[in-house]
Amino acid sequence: MIKTLGLEYFKIRRKKIWIMIMLFLGVEMLWAFISINRSIASNPDQAIWESVIHTIASMNGLFIPILSAIIVSRICDMEHKGSTWKMLVTTNVGRGQIYSAKYICANSLLLYSILAQTLLMVVFGLIKGFPGAPPFELLIQFIGGTLLTTLAVTALQQWISLAIKNQAFALCLGMLGGFIGMTIGLFPAAVRHIFIWSYYMDLSPVTFLYDEHSSSYITQTVGSGLVVAALIMTVIFYVAGRIHITLKEI
């Protein structure tokens, strides 16, 4: 397994995936920090750690599905382009093993991105002089929730990217996911929970509460039901994709 995973990293050299990740991350963080700066300027009470966690979590609903679609597509498309999938499966390495290696590779790249995001949030908070020490418990919950949602999203993306040669489908799905992730807050919870892309916000430890006169950030305990739902979706997308791709005739 380590050998096939190492090969996936070897194969993505010159694919400029790192540049793509940095660009996406840069744009997202810049947008988020400008937006938080503005809200702090109009309401200094919002200069708290919760504001940055909530803003980034809601923006992840837009950015990570698209970034995930791009990364997974780059990792899978090279097998279509050079007809290398048939070459790989005629070696003595199992198809399932190659599928798993690709999944781990894509998610590890996205994990780097999530960790870099968290680090930038801490730096931003310290620069802005948010009260108190960085809330590591909330940040760990943020990382966990984002990663869990990403695991399900990449499982779905990988299935589509390997099953359909034309990567336009996979990229469209990523964009559709980003659109849903961005607008899902407008829908009732029952509808929201059907779509995996809404979990970037749902699994966030901070939410934004509106009442008649004011609005504020509050920390929330993420329900175990949502975590289980995200896990089930991950397993379904991964197992269904793996079975479909490994049994597919070439």
């Binding site: 050998k3 190492g6 090969l7 070897f10 194969k11 010159r14 090279m78 382009k81 790989l88």
Partner: peptide, 20 residues
């Protein structure tokens, strides 16, 4: 023939070398 177009001939061979 199967090959990774963005990699050199030698790198393609190295992939097969590791697999084999």
């Amino acid at each position: 023939p199967s090959y990774y177009g963005h990699l050199t001939g030698l790198e393609n061979m190295k992939i097969m070398q590791r697999l084999r």
